[in-house]
Design a protein around this nucleic acid. Sequence first.
DNA 1: TCCTAAGCGAGACGGTACGTCCAGTCTTCGT
DNA 2: ACGAAGACTGGACGTACCGTCTCGCTTAGGA
Lengths: 210, 210, 210, 210
Amino acid sequence: MLVIMKRERIESPAVETRAPGRPRSEEAHDAILGAAVALIREVGYDAVTMEGIAAKAGVGKATVYRRWKEKETLVIEAIGRIVAAIPIPDTGGAEGDLMALMRAALGMYADPASGLLLSGLVAAMARSERIAHAVRTGFDATWRAAVRQVLERAVARGELRAGLDIRLATDVIGGPLFYRYLMSGGPVDEPLAREIVSILLRAFAREGGG
Amino acid sequence: MLVIMKRERIESPAVETRAPGRPRSEEAHDAILGAAVALIREVGYDAVTMEGIAAKAGVGKATVYRRWKEKETLVIEAIGRIVAAIPIPDTGGAEGDLMALMRAALGMYADPASGLLLSGLVAAMARSERIAHAVRTGFDATWRAAVRQVLERAVARGELRAGLDIRLATDVIGGPLFYRYLMSGGPVDEPLAREIVSILLRAFAREGGG
Amino acid sequence: MLVIMKRERIESPAVETRAPGRPRSEEAHDAILGAAVALIREVGYDAVTMEGIAAKAGVGKATVYRRWKEKETLVIEAIGRIVAAIPIPDTGGAEGDLMALMRAALGMYADPASGLLLSGLVAAMARSERIAHAVRTGFDATWRAAVRQVLERAVARGELRAGLDIRLATDVIGGPLFYRYLMSGGPVDEPLAREIVSILLRAFAREGGG
Amino acid sequence: MLVIMKRERIESPAVETRAPGRPRSEEAHDAILGAAVALIREVGYDAVTMEGIAAKAGVGKATVYRRWKEKETLVIEAIGRIVAAIPIPDTGGAEGDLMALMRAALGMYADPASGLLLSGLVAAMARSERIAHAVRTGFDATWRAAVRQVLERAVARGELRAGLDIRLATDVIGGPLFYRYLMSGGPVDEPLAREIVSILLRAFAREGGG
DNA sequence: TCCTAAGCGAGACGGTACGTCCAGTCTTCGT
DNA sequence: ACGAAGACTGGACGTACCGTCTCGCTTAGGA
């Protein structure tokens, strides 16, 4: 699952030594990243062009290339910007916590821009190991961390059995939504979320429990 | 989940009525697809060009564009050639049947071409409703039909509870593999498959059953 | 000078005839030539395509190529169709005859289609000696013959001097209109015609004449 | 009549204000025109391709298209390079001056490239008002200005009658050569020039003069 | 205060591929 | 044995980007 989060700069010039000459403009930097994010959401990954980004940012192409050696590098960083902080819920129970997480995910899928973003991302990941890595250590990791924390708390409370495979559980929670959204085209909604949480709870309930 | 089938042409001329004029050359068609497959293997997905494909196939560019409106469509179909069909298993038990299905899926994910195929497909689907429809009624529907048949048989045998949501079950079976393969990057292997089947069987077991 | 006729007869439907499987080759022939003429007038020589001609004639490309080996050959023949019989005037005097000829020419220049036709023709002549020959022995020759006859009659009547260079006189009559129309862009009208006739009469008046 | 002049750029960027950005390369410009001229000579007008020109000039296609919107415009300008300027003669007499002008024109017609140049120009003018205007205010105007000056001097000297229609005289001088060269195919030579000058002098001689 | 290095927006540069359009040829079917 | 339809190879067209390279200018810090 991915829920987009806040991420810091991936590529940056070494700023340790004081460079001579005019310093790089922080404004231009932000404008470029902002334009890239906007274009990725608007037209999708493939249709984004460096010229379009530069134009939208009101910046010369050279200014873009001075900071990012190639399109891929910039897009990776831009993708990192498309983040939502995902609050880790604490409702006191596993079901409540998981549903809160699910609702955050549903919110993302409900955004019409997400289809292009997600699919473009997936295509880019398949083509570039660097992009794949950026996405995995970026917003996917954030989601997984949130799920992990919720699950561990549930284990600690005795709601779920100790030793459950957290990675597996995470994929079971997020996978069906992802698959439905991108491939099979069914509704990605609250009932689906509820069913999945229910399946998970049943499957990983404390032994001898429920 | 999708397991690629025969050769469900995405772009195809209406073949209902006998067309006048010279029919399209099956040789040219095969040569183009063959050249595309060869080039994808040689230089990789991104570096494939329509001009290169036409040249390697010994064919005019117009002949390529007559069949595939755009590069993406052709490349997707070419990659689809690499992947194989899925037989509907009948081992006599739900677990055996589901694992057989899973192994077919694992086989596809194990093919290095699949990442490109799947991600290209996903990106194309997000861009084009036509492609999305073709994939959903083609590749994906085939997989879903196989799963449905296996599940219905299990219900008939009393292994699974009547009235289970087959669409949901299908997404729960296929989603985690798809998600792991394209997004989170974990292993898509036999243990994962076994766990998922196990979760499903537990979640949808006949009520009161063991 | 060339004088182009207003020739209709572009369409050749007339499908009333029952075809027992015998060639209607003459119809196709005429339809092709008619379509070629129409297209030359409509869009100019360069923009004419064999496909356009075949389509407009309601004929397959092969049918066109069966009769004319290449575009040039067809266009040559089509151009030959765009000729008008130019009536040789006989007003009883050189000035009247020449002005009658002039008015025929002015009529052609007044037709808006003539600009494209003429310029296309000129370009085609420069490119192809065969086309040049066709044009020169086709409608240019018709014009020259008319002028010649008028001038010879005038000589016979004693209005113009014997031994005048008829070719020169013809070029002096036709050249300025042609040049103005195609190059300098001035008006090609009655006053111009009158002046030219007047110059010619003065220049070639019988020696010792008025 | 036209005698091609200096280098009256047909397509040119607005040069009034200092443009931002990298200025266009004069080297590239010359290389393109040079390559175009060379190819026209080598393979002929029709067979010239923009790709060939760009390749021979060692230049990207975009660099060519940035300067000339279409093939025709470039080729016309390239051909214009082949032809030289026309000096305004001053021999002291109308006949001498006019014959000097005529000889300049004959020189142009004698150049084998001129047929292609002229016909291409004419075709382009018929297709494009912009090109027509450029040619009329460029090439053609230069010739007309020279003729005008010669004629006005002759009027001032009393050799030709006051109030003669200069535009008419210019067309009568240039038209027959142009027509003969492009259409009727007769010789464009000194005798023709001499006859035309003679006709003109007779037709526009000072009244009562001899 | 001026010098120098590097920044800036703008846009041209050489390339490569795109998707379209014809020329002239070939192939199928129907009449 | 035609003729209509339309596919075939080949190759130029004009466009759009890529990543690089000037241009004339601005913005600092250090001399």
